[in-house]
Structure formats: C-alpha cells, structure tokens
Design a protein around this nucleic acid. Structure first.
Length: 262
DNA sequence: ACATTGACCTGAGAGC
DNA sequence: TGCTCTCAGGTCAATG
C-alpha cells in the first residue's frame, strides 16, 4: 500500500526521530531485501556515520549520510519504519535495524519482502538508472509535461498512472481516487481521452496527492467527498450513493463508480 | 516501443 | 479445527 503520500509520511517520521544520530551498528535480519549491496558492505558503510537529511522521489526514500553514499529504501506494499528510544523487541518482519549510539533504533519492516534497501551514490543518478518519471508532486509536471509523457500510450489510463516511468509515486489506491475525481473510467485507453479529460486527470492527480500528503497519507482523514474512505468503508459512491464496482486492469483490481466514471 | 502476464513474497480470510 | 485456495499489490522479467 505505501504510495507517494505514505513515503512522505515515512520521510517526516525519519526526520523527526532519527537524524543526526551516530549509527552504532546495522543488523540485517533478512538478506532478501538487500538490493545490489551485501550485508557486510551495508554494515561497514553505515557504521559510525549519521543520517543527515532525507529526500523522496516517487515511492523511494533516500537518506543522506554525513559521509559516503545515500541509503535507499523502497517499501513494497507492506513496508514501514519504526523508531524506538529504548531497547525493546523489534516488530515481526523486521528486516533491517539501524542501532544508534545512545540506545535508540530505527527499523525497516517489510512483511512481504517486496521492498528493498540499497545504497546509491546520489539521488539523481539512481533515478536516471531506473528510468523513473518525475515525482507526482514535482512542479515541473504541468499539464503539457503530463500530456507529453502519456503520448503514444495505448493502454488503460489506470496502468499509465501507475507506471513509475511516466509519473513516480502513484499506485493502485491513489490511482482509483484520481480517476474518480476526474470522472474517468479506469479502463479507458489513454489515446481515446480528449484534451478535457486528460486535463481533468492531471488536475485530480495534483490535487489528490497534495491533499493526501497534507493528511499524512491517512485515508480516513480524507474528506468524505473523496473516494478512498468509501472504497475502504461503505462501498458507496460519495457523489451518487451507488454501489461501487470493480474490474481488473492489467492484473490490478480497480475500484470505481459505474455511474460517475463512464 | 509498448502492453500484458506471471513470479516474487507472506499472511489473512473465505470456503469446505 | 484445519486444510486449501485466493487475494492483497509494487515491480520486473518474459512474452505477445
């Protein structure tokens, strides 16, 4: 479930709890989540360093060390961070522990192991190497840029929104909200959308992500006029009260209102 | 070049 | 109670 607004919350959480503390040691509980880095190199790179600042791009969280490369974290669909001042039992499915001098610790938890922890020399080259599109909240993603990135696409608009190479940060959940607010059916092909519809999708994308970040990625704190509280709740469209419908869109389950999204 | 599908991974919940 | 099946969903390799 972690999408752009969730990663923004994790970033804030890390900033508030873990910056400027010296790392005493790193424990890798499960090597499966390490990507392009051995446990030994991760340990040696981080030991004695401190976390100095964070950055986010799409669903990736980057953490700058006082010296050396950046730590990169991706949360798959079940990942999150947990900080504790005192030594206590780590949560189930803890994959990496960052133990600080002074007793605090930050852990990376990822039940389904679809996320990963890695090192990168710098944020920009990491993003380039993965061919990632602009972050969904990037100011440069204006309507023209958005339309250009969708040019030549024939697949479903929902798939395009979830494609990290087109726009980074949107997943299954928030693409549902965006398409609901734009009044566009998730299965509509990108090429058959006219300029007005594309503009609505773009406007909804910006608005939804901004609001969701503002609400800390907590769906129950979104306005009742939003789609997601009902997707997770009564299953009724907040606009017309009709029963929500679902459909498979390239392997994912899309939720939508059959009346408001034609 | 783009689109689609299955595999990866684990646990919850359904159905029997 | 316990077994099996399906589903959740981000991403990537393989296939169309």
């Amino acid at each position: 479930m972690p999408e752009l607004p969730d990663i923004a919350r994790f970033k804030k959480y890390l900033d508030a709890t873990s910056l400027h503390q010296v790392i005493r040691r790193v424990v890798v509980h499960d090597h499966d989540v390490l990507e392009d880095v051995s446990a030994q190199r991760l340990r040696r790179t981080l030991q004695g360093r401190s976390l100095e600042s964070t950055d986010r791009w799409g669903k990736f969280l980057f953490v700058e060390l006082d010296e050396g490369p950046w730590v990169v974290m991706h949360f798959g669909m079940t990942g999150y961070l947990d900080y504790s001042e005192i030594a206590k039992q780590v949560p189930d499915h803890t994959r990496v522990t960052y133990q600080f001098e002074g007793g605090g610790r930050l852990v990376y938890v990822c039940q389904r192991k679809l996320g990963c922890v890695s090192l990168a020399d710098d944020v920009q080259s990491f993003i380039r190497s993965r061919n990632m599109g602009p972050d969904g909240l990037d100011k440069r993603l204006d309507f023209e840029a958005f339309r250009q990135r969708l040019a030549g696409r024939r697949g479903a608009i929902k798939s395009a929104l979830m494609n990290q190479q087109i726009v980074a940060g949107i997943g299954n959940i928030y693409s549902d909200e965006i398409l609901f607010q734009a009044g566009v059916h998730p299965k509509r092909s990108v090429i058959e959308l006219d300029d007005g519809e594309l503009r609505s999708v773009h406007r909804a994308l910006r608005k939804v992500l901004r609001k969701a970040v503002d609400r800390n990625g907590e769906i129950q704190r979104l306005p009742r006029s939003y789609f997601l509280p009902h997707r997770e709740g009564d299953g009724l469209c907040p606009r017309c009260q009709r029963e929500l419908d679902e459909a498979k869109v390239s392997g994912r389950t899309a939720h939508f209102c059959p009346r408001c999204q034609q």
